[in-house]
């Protein structure tokens, strides 16, 4: 076993994604504690040029092959299993993204390495790696260690500052061919969302609704409030799944990442997937009937009440 900390880089449209920089920044400090290197592993086809964007790593391993031109769960797993087995890193860090979930759990089962999922913090002390993970939609946090001292961690986006992983540098670059291929899952196409009537990533005031809205007809109430505040209505995932608001209004992990000046979270419990997309807002005011809702852990102001009582009163107050 080495003290190396491996980060599986995620990239799209010729750019490294932010969660990779977040992991790389943390990998640097962990590698200093474990006496190893922070190593970025970059899979793709003709992606050597992207290695230069990973300057914060001590080493970049470029796994280059035509079968890796786009992400595929089987192709990534086939290429990564022999690599991780051979290098024996102390930790493998992977973003808790759509593709990251496939890669991490697949590696865990294939390599018999334990996996700590949904991590929001990760340190190394005398006892080895210690991960803090979110459970039960963020209502519980668990501190876990790996029985054998090494393992895989998937981290919730936004848990570490991306800036720490963006530094310049001159990492050692190794280019290898994938040791194995598996084309049982074939990439077909990347589908991008159609532009909506409102771009919630550009609004400075978002009035955001979740399940607490109760009925579709109550959406009118939040639209009235948004109009009175000069903002726009956004939502958590369940509201978009129900079709009560267009998908383009959805914030969170599977929706859009928003950073408005004011975010009013109405009837949103604050599952980790939602917090990931809005916790960067300058001012968060949360209204929820459940005093234990995780949204209150990121809110600056909190109200334990039924939003159907508060919203009309607030609309009347600011609407004059």
């Amino acid at each position: 076993m080495s003290g190396d900390i491996v980060v599986i880089a995620e990239h799209r449209d010729g750019a490294i994604l932010d969660p990779t920089y977040e992991l790389l920044g943390r990998a640097r400090s962990l590698a200093a504690a474990s006496g190893g290197e922070a190593i970025a592993v970059l899979l793709g086809s003709g992606v050597a040029g992207l290695a230069g964007s990973l300057g914060a790593a001590a080493r970049v391993i470029v796994v280059d092959g035509p079968g890796l031109a786009s992400f595929s769960p089987t192709a990534y797993q086939a290429a990564l299993v022999p690599l991780v087995r051979e290098r024996e890193p102390a930790l493998v860090l992977i973003a808790n993204s759509g593709s990251g979930m496939d890669v991490a759990a697949g590696l865990s089962a294939a390599l018999d390495l334990p996996l700590a999922a949904y991590a929001i913090d990760l340190t190394i002390d005398a006892g080895g790696p210690l991960a803090t993970c979110q459970l039960y939609a963020g209502k519980i946090q668990a501190k876990v260690r790996f029985a054998g001292g090494r393992g895989i961690v998937t981290a919730v986006a936004g848990s570490f500052p991306a800036e720490a992983g963006m530094g310049p540098g001159s990492p050692v670059i190794e280019t290898v061919a994938p040791a194995a291929t598996d084309d049982r899952i074939r990439f077909v196409d990347l589908l991008r969302p159609e532009a909506g009537d409102v771009d919630i990533t550009r609004e400075s005031v978002l009035v955001s609704v979740g399940r607490g809205i109760g009925e579709q007809e109550n959406i009118e109430l939040v639209e009235a409030l948004a109009a009175a505040l000069g903002g726009a209505v956004s939502s958590s995932r369940p509201i978009a799944d129900l079709g009560w608001l267009p998908r383009t209004r959805q914030g969170g992990k599977s929706g859009l990442k928003v950073k408005p000046r004011v975010y009013l979270a109405l009837g949103i419990s604050g599952a980790p997937e939602h917090l990931e997309g809005m916790r960067g807002a300058e001012l968060i005011i949360a209204v929820n009937s459940d005093a234990r809702a995780p949204i209150f852990s990121v809110a600056h102001y909190g109200v334990v009440a039924d939003l159907l009582d508060v919203v009309p009163a607030l609309t009347a107050r600011v609407g004059g």
Binding site: L113, G138, K139, R145, F146, S297, A299, G302, D309
Partner: peptide
């Protein structure tokens, strides 16, 4: 292969200033 050292309920509202009263 995981060892759970501790579980805790995160402090909610610890950073939020709570507002109470009638609507």
């Amino acid at each position: 292969g995981l060892v759970i050292e501790a579980m805790a309920i995160p402090e909610t509202g610890s950073t939020a200033e709570m507002i109470s009263g009638n609507p």
